[in-house]
Design a protein around this nucleic acid. Structure first.
Length: 596
RNA sequence: UGCCCGAUGGUGUAACGGUAGCACAGCAGACUCUGGAUCUGUUUGUCAUGGUUCAAAUCCAUGUCGGGCAGCCA
């Protein structure tokens, strides 16, 4: 097996162990996985786990991972979703597994081939310019799927059933009650062939007939009780248009799509475990000449303080409880991206949580840790004041103005330094001054000293209040010899705070995001919307250092002592809007919250 | 009273018959021109009961608890 290109440690999990064993046994010429979303919603962080697994395996074993739209239900799907899915997948695997992404030529469909004298179909992948490529679509296989269905009928293994949807349900029985055979189960092959063809021609209305596999109505596995393979749906499809009014079900389409693409390991979530016997039954009974894919299941991701189901996310969007699928509070990949998280953080997260069959609940703190860990070494530091309090340095001359040197990133010396304007009037964070602080408060207080980061030490000499008794200004003296590099620069002062020059500061909008829900398991019981966090978004006007006027999208900054911020697409030239990706850890605030 | 799957500290995960480890969270401390970062220390665990074995988290049996399965959804 070939090691991946990046210097990340090789990770093992039970599925990779299976793949490794298959590679060692020489079972397949090449390992091919697939990521098969249905285009009926946006991808979320749960999908990211699956993408990282499937592309990670392709990467670890020198194989490929096909992106495939599992689009067999035209009534729920849309091209908007197809496009967002492609963009999200590309973003997540960028600079990591791009070379493993399996695409096909635009418009290509499976080719007819002869394998050891047996006629068969195969869907080739392709490489080339992005504009000539597209993902795989299960709907591109409808002709071949139809041919396979005919073969099943000819073998006496499938039949057209006239039972209504309600009767089909009733005949299926229940988990502890065997089903009954459909009265249409023993139609002749000729009649089945004729009826199936007429279903395709559109002779029958929705729900009138289905094609069913002839397996075993008494099976303890409900999915083996003559499952429906095809249903009539007079509906236009986002990818095939009006060509079909007969659409295959997931169970029939999925295993065969895997086979057509030469998938070796078909990895899905736990709820499909009971479908595996059917997956195998269809492939085995078709007498297919090439190696068959195999299905493996792992536990989907659940995160605290998060809802993950597409239905609930769609509800948040439709009911305008968020601004859209890409609202930075959403667990969607587009939301997470807009929030300022990098794909590197998501990949690190996927590695950290692992892959098992245990259906657990991952603490969102793990994700937050990965986000901070990713941003800390790369984010340039900037000074910004979210809740400004004016400070006048009384011993500096009126109109005094100078520049101080600030370190761009203490974690990365190569990031260099920049000049930051400093003057007689500055803003500091409201929280960084307390008139009557509790014990253990390190920051500015009457008569006390604090260091202004990169500038020098100040001492509070006077507190100015308005008529209501609120502190509106603080007056201090500046210790000139304590400047960075000065004679008393290393004098010990408990606190160091950030600040911004009042005359030079850029006024801008900052969006402070917090968790969308207030409880660890919003959908544990009752209506998850009751647990929405009313403070998940706070929009403020902030004062930031002037260099940020040129902040470009896709760049992440750390506002010192506050958190990580990124430029939102809503920004205008010279008027950036910042999204707070995540706060810095703040042991003082945590301690204070614990004591109150 | 059906079938399938699972169970290791608070959470997630490793140990593949041979010293129960890692990460997050927590706690305590060191350091610090970010109460950030970093570093150090530390509390807490093999679902239960039997069996096999020199040796069991691991294999077997039974039980308990949890999850999934009765769409013409995926």
């Amino acid at each position: 097996m070939s090691p991946g290109p990046a210097a990340e440690p090789a990770h093992r999990d039970f599925i990779r162990d299976i793949v490794a064993a298959d590679v060692a046994a020489g079972k397949y010429a090449k390992i091919i996985t697939r990521f098969p979303p249905e285009p009926n919603g946006y991808l979320h962080i749960g999908h990211a786990k699956s993408i990282c697994l499937n592309f990670g395996i392709a990467r670890d074993f020198g194989g490929r991972c096909n992106l495939r739209m599992d689009d067999t239900n035209p009534t729920k799907e849309d091209v908007e979703y197809v496009e967002s899915i492609i963009a999200d997948v590309r973003w997540l695997i960028q600079d990591w597994a791009d070379d493993r992404l399996g695409f096909k030529n635009r418009g290509a469909t499976p080719a007819a081939v002869l394998v050891d004298g047996t006629p068969d179909f195969i869907q080739e992948s392709a490489t080339g310019s992005p504009s000539s490529l597209e993902p795989f679509f299960a709907s591109d296989y409808f002709d071949q799927l139809y041919a396979y269905a005919v073969r099943l009928i000819q073998k006496g293994l499938a039949y057209v059933c006239d039972l209504s949807p309600e009767d089909t349900d009733a005949y299926r029985g229940s988990p502890d009650q065997p089903g009954r055979e459909s009265p249409f189960r023993n139609r002749s092959v000729a009649e089945n062939l004729d009826l199936f063809a007429r279903m395709r021609e559109g002779e029958f209305p929705n729900g009138a007939r289905t094609l069913r596999a002839k397996i075993q109505m008494a099976s303890p596995n409900i999915w083996m009780r003559d499952p429906v393979l095809y249903r009539i749906r007079h509906a236009a499809h986002h990818h095939t248009g009006d060509k079909w009014c007969l659409y295959p079900m997931y169970d029939f389409a999925h295993c065969l799509s895997d086979y057509l693409e030469g998938i070796t390991h078909s990895i899905c979530t736990l709820e499909f475990e009971v479908h595996r016997p059917l997956y195998d039954w269809i492939l085995e009974n078709l007498g297919l000449p090439r190696p068959l894919p195999h299905q493996y299941e792992f536990a989907r991701l659940s995160l605290t303080y998060t809802v993950m189901s597409k239905r609930k996310l769609l509800q948040l969007v439709n009911e305008k409880l968020v601004t859209g699928w890409d609202d930075p509070r959403m667990p969607t990949l587009s939301g997470i991206r807009r929030r300022g998280v990098r794909p590197e953080a998501l990949r690190a997260f996927a590695l950290t949580i692992g892959v098992t069959k245990y259906d657990g609940l991952t603490d969102v703190a793990v994700l937050e840790h990965c986000i901070r860990g990713d941003l800390n070494p790369i984010a340039h530091r900037r000074l910004g004041v979210l809740h400004p309090l004016k400070v006048v340095l009384t011993n500096l001359p009126e109109g005094h103005s100078e520049f101080v040197q600030a370190t761009n990133n203490p974690e990365d010396e190569a990031a260099g330094t920049r000049s930051v304007p400093f003057g007689r009037e500055i803003y500091i964070e409201k929280d960084d001054f307390m008139e009557a602080p509790p014990k253990g408060y390190f920051r500015l207080q009457p008569g006390g000293e604090v260091r202004l980061k990169y500038a020098g030490i100040i001492r509070c000499t006077e507190v100015v209040k308005d008529a209501a008794g609120r502190v509106v200004e603080v007056r201090c003296t500046f210790d000139d010899t304590s400047r960075t590099g000065g004679a008393t620069a290393n004098r010990k002062v408990k606190g160091t705070i950030h600040w911004v020059s009042a005359t030079d500061a850029l006024d801008c909008e900052v969006r402070l995001y917090d968790r969308l829900f207030t409880v660890p398991e919003p959908d544990a019981s009752g209506d998850f919307k009751h647990h929405l966090n009313p403070n998940s978004l706070t929009v403020i006007r902030a004062k930031v250092e002037p260099s940020l006027a040129q902040a470009s999208p896709e760049v992440r900054y750390q506002f010192e002592r506050l958190g990580y911020f990124t430029v939102d697409p809503d920004s205008q030239p010279g008027q950036p809007v910042f999204n707070r990706t995540i706060t810095l850890k703040d042991s003082w605030a945590k301690d204070a919250a614990r004591k109150s």
